[in-house]
Amino acid sequence: MINNQKDVLMDLVINNKHISIRAGGGRCLLDFLREDLSLMGTKEGCGEGECGSCTVLLDGKAVLSCMTPMERAIGREVTTIEGVGRPGNLHPLQQAMMEEGGVQCGFCTPGMIMSGVELLNRKSNPNRDEIVEGISGNLCRCTGYRKIITAIERAAEKMS
């Protein structure tokens, strides 16, 4: 990407780790995460705020990182899929997605999990309608959503 913007000091917390680096400004948060921090878990689906694949948490709230200017994250806390859980120490929702078969091609999965995690943080025992609403901004072409919805239900049960 041609970038004529000045460098900015990106001072923020990412996945519970404080970082402070100079980076070319004027880009979206998604590009900053992937290109500068090599956090490749966050996916770019449409790049225009329609599909939800790039969802991350900004101060605990789900945002579309492709539509969020990177500068908006300065002084705030960003959580990506890498900060949700790691192999051997998975988040209950990641575990449930595996067990329930909520993953097929996997491209929507990180964004789907971020939306699910935000929902579960907000509401410990969501009903089916609330789950559907919570992930209605995340498109999935493979699964038909039902196994993803079930996975969020299972995760909620485990977490309560």
Partner: peptide, 17 residues
């Protein structure tokens, strides 16, 4: 040619299967 004009089903469009 984008997902705001070419709509595909979301979780809210899925019936019990």
């Amino acid at each position: 040619a984008n997902l705001s004009t070419y709509l595909i089903p979301t979780a809210a469009d899925v019936p019990p299967i």
